[in-house]
Design a protein around this nucleic acid. Structure first.
Ligand SMILES: [Mn+2]
Ligand SMILES: [Mn+2]
Ligand SMILES: [Mn+2]
Ligand SMILES: [Mn+2]
Lengths: 221, 221
DNA sequence: TATTTTTTTTAGATTTGTCTAAATTTAATT
DNA sequence: AATTAAATTTAGACAAATCTAAAAAAAATA
């Protein structure tokens, strides 16, 4: 099956919204795709007719098995291209998302599998998000906690950033906080919940509560 | 400026047809794009309105400066991706054209320039066609002659294949004739104009007149 | 030159994805 | 429960790219 770029974007967005709640609403999806609720309703009908979606009028919607399968392949492509752009073309992890938004719609499965081989089957993308294999499966993720929940003086590794706005990624890039970076919380200031960190056992860095919440580290309790 | 995939395909096809004649006709272009003359006329009006094309009703058409510039960038992308697919992802030169047809429409100029750097600024694609630089210029090509015009017992290097149908490329792949391959003509049979070759100073290979005409080698008179 | 054939353009439809404005359904509040 | 507000869907329109059938122009040929 081949689906239009627009349909693929809808499927991927539904997949991501589902992960947080269970069922997705028209307004939510319209906001995520920067489009109008009426356009979403139009598309939902088409996706349902193509048997990619479970949807009853006014009841919300979610992907069925086939829709999930398609979404996972798009996510696989997105993340493999991001990895390629960072590892091979030397882009910063904060500049690759937009390019991957375009590349993820490329259709030749064989190319994607070869790219995977060329990159040596990476397990996660430059933002720490797992890369599904060609069957749509990915490894069990390590348990993650956000930085404000990490105990003082316990060293942990950055696994992911969420949400990943261009702005946060740019800031973290500047402070040398990357996926895989070792972080220890040295001090919590209750005044504004800002944190002072040791990054890679070296520099002392201060970050706001908002930034701290977006940094996910491993929870090795 | 950003142009639709469809418009880009029109511009590229016009560019290639121009190189043979000077002015392009509606039927020619329709045939090249596997579409109908009426559709071509529709698009010509749009391209003219966007100032990419010189076109008067019933008079044929050709690219103007701006159109040529756009076409050359698409060709640059096409050929760089082909090079990438062959050199890095280990595809055969006979399988990459279709994939490049899709990849050539990706828009981020910075990505293409980084890809160029990553590939070490290749001068020509896997089929021997020159790759324009980021300003749309390419090197002066070596003088080319087709194999039937090469003198007996003179060794020459394969520079290009033209035309490049999937079928010819597959056949040449099978006979180990690639860009850069050294060829010597051992014998010409006047009965059917078939040739017996020495390929890379080793095997004796026989090819038909039709195949020979499509192989272009350097003319070192 | 007159007639026929070929090429090109126009007219009118269709599909896909989008939009605004209005109608309908569901949810929240008095 | 009645009313108001919010969410969702429908109706009708539009732009892009395509098509078929018919008309118009150019080229070929008798
Ligand atoms: Mn991304
Ligand atoms: Mn990512
Ligand atoms: Mn090609
Ligand atoms: Mn090529």
């Amino acid at each position: 099956m081949k689906y239009s770029i627009s349909k693929e974007n809808y499927l991927k967005a539904i997949f991501h919204l589902q992960n947080e709640n269970g069922v997705v609403t028209t307004n939510e999806l319209a906001a995520a795709l920067l489009t109008k609720p009426a356009s979403v309703t139009d598309m939902l009908k088409k996706l349902k007719a193509q048997r990619l979606l479970i949807y009853e009028k006014y009841k919300g919607f979610k992907l069925n098995n086939e829709g999930r399968k398609v979404a996972l392949q798009i996510i696989r492509k997105h993340r493999l291209w991001e990895y390629f752009l960072v590892e091979k073309l030397q882009f910063g992890w904060d500049e690759v998302h937009e390019m991957a938004e375009e590349l993820e719609h490329f259709t030749h499965k064989k190319l994607i599998d070869r790219l995977d081989t060329f990159l040596n089957y990476p397990k996660s993308d430059p933002h720490g998000d797992p890369i599904p294999d060609s069957n749509g499966k990915f490894d069990q993720q390590q348990k993650q906690i956000s930085l404000p929940h990490l105990s003082l003086h316990r060293t942990a590794k950055v696994l992911a950033i969420s949400p990943q706005t261009k702005e946060i990624l740019e800031l973290l890039q500047h402070k040398n906080i990357l996926i895989g970076t070792k972080i220890e919380v040295k001090k919590k200031f209750s005044f504004d919940d800002s944190l002072e960190l040791k990054v890679n056992n070296r520099t002392a860095v201060t970050i706001s509560a908002a930034v701290a919440k977006s940094i996910l580290v491993n929870d090795d309790q």
